[in-house]
Design a protein around this nucleic acid. Structure first.
Lengths: 241, 241
DNA sequence: CTTCCAGTGTTACCGCGGTAACTGACCCGC
DNA sequence: GCGGGTCAGTTACCGCGGTAACACTGGAAG
């Protein structure tokens, strides 16, 4: 369940120039590393490695720890009392995971690596200590929380008045925004997700997502690219709904 | 839409002793005033008065302001693209409202007074300034955000695998926990909510909530008290679901 | 008193989507 | 090659809950 490695080095390039370049790219892409969060909080810390399907934390765990993703892909979600898995969000390099631990000692969500992931674990107490006295960082951290809250509310709204097709469209647009690379008319979603996983984001049966997806394919709005990656026509997706 | 009155005084008792007593009661009851938040942030500020049905802030507003409720009752929620109103939460004396404004300049939720409400408005910037350097307050504020997030996720879970009856039971248990006063075997929910409002919390049609509620009444789990207030048998409600 | 209306209670209809039960494609290890 | 496992695609059935269209009540306003 995750191998400890020495912080700072790891899979980063070795030479100072390379490291600077990598850092610049990171900071351009990501919300939390941008505001010097990494500079203040993360240097000289042990990173943890997770393989695909490794559980980062589980429902009911009582570690009050946040994970700052250096590299990789993580799903956050839960398993309902009836055993149904739901995915709240998918997070990538530069995002935080586990922010809900600020609430109580026992976790009400879970996080699982969807690919090999390198993350830095920081105790909630330490985060608070660092945040106090650094208004800029505090602002950023608050934004992270509010962003999650806002997306959760959006999910509730969507469940309230969208049908499965519309919810799927929402999920695809989100994914295209987060993981999309432009590719001709379309945007290719750079991460492979099974229909099962898609359906857990849509909150519907896999079968429904399958037929909805094929309906979009028949209309030429969605394509499968070679390695099973989805290619979506964002414009038509957006006004088709 | 809200009358400005001089902060600190208002409807509070005048003598020092009375004010201390009132403060003690407040602090015993409520999450945010408890931790000296009020002492640091709220003295000498103008309070705003809202009548029933006054809008505190609306979808699309761009004021980045949090409201600390001194007294009253406020619903937060939204109106979906299809015109359906949804209630995310109901907040009372001691709670904060408008925390989502940390995210962007335009509000994605709305808040409406359900009863005469007295609240202190504080710009988000100021909140950040006060929070910086006060870890205890920072912790509390983070808790407020995480609590909202956690409840939003719970709502998603509930929408994913509970039927209307179970969702209604959840809502009633929440209300009993927040606004309940013990009364014999039962707990009386101290605030009057129309079935329409209940249905907006349950996220279902009013008609369904009406029949579900009466089903609970016939089973003796829920009663109407004189002024239309609900009296619920928390124990049976909990294990009935 | 009567009128009006917000809130409540109920019921028939029907469509969306969960359930179940398959088939088929592809990949991996033996 | 063959068998097993994971993922994808499809369809018939049927139940929950949205829709619509009512009737009833109590309080407020005239």
């Amino acid at each position: 369940m995750g191998t400890v490695q020495q912080g700072g080095s790891g899979e980063q390039p070795a030479s100072p120039d390379d490291r600077l370049a990598a850092a610049t790219v990171d900071c351009a892409l990501v919300p939390l590393f941008r505001g010097r969060f990494c500079d203040v909080l993360l240097p000289d810390r042990a990173a943890v490695l997770f393989d695909e399907d490794d559980v980062i934390y589980e429902l009911g765990d009582d570690d009050r720890v946040l994970f700052f993703i250096r590299d990789g892909l993580v799903k956050t979600g839960t398993i309902t009392s009836q055993g149904r898995e739901i995915i709240y969000d998918i997070r990538k390099s530069g995002d935080v995971v586990g922010e809900l631990c600020a609430l109580e000692s026992v976790r009400r969500d879970r996080a699982v690596a969807l690919a090999r992931t390198e993350a830095v674990a920081v105790r909630f107490d330490e985060v608070v200590d660092v945040l106090a006295g650094r208004p800029a960082l505090l602002r950023e951290f608050t934004q992270v929380l509010c962003n999650a809250l806002s997306e959760a509310y959006a999910q509730v709204n969507s469940l309230a008045d969208d049908d499965v097709m519309q919810r799927l469209v929402n999920v695809l647009l989100n994914l295209a925004g987060k993981f999309g690379r432009p590719l001709g008319e379309c945007v290719e979603i750079g991460t492979y997700l099974t229909q099962e996983e898609l359906s857990q984001m849509v909150v519907a049966r896999r079968e429904r997502v399958s037929t909805a997806l094929n309906s979009l394919r028949r209309r030429g709005i969605v394509h499968y690219s070679p390695r099973g990656h989805l290619r979506v026509d964002v414009a038509r997706l957006r006004d088709g709904a």
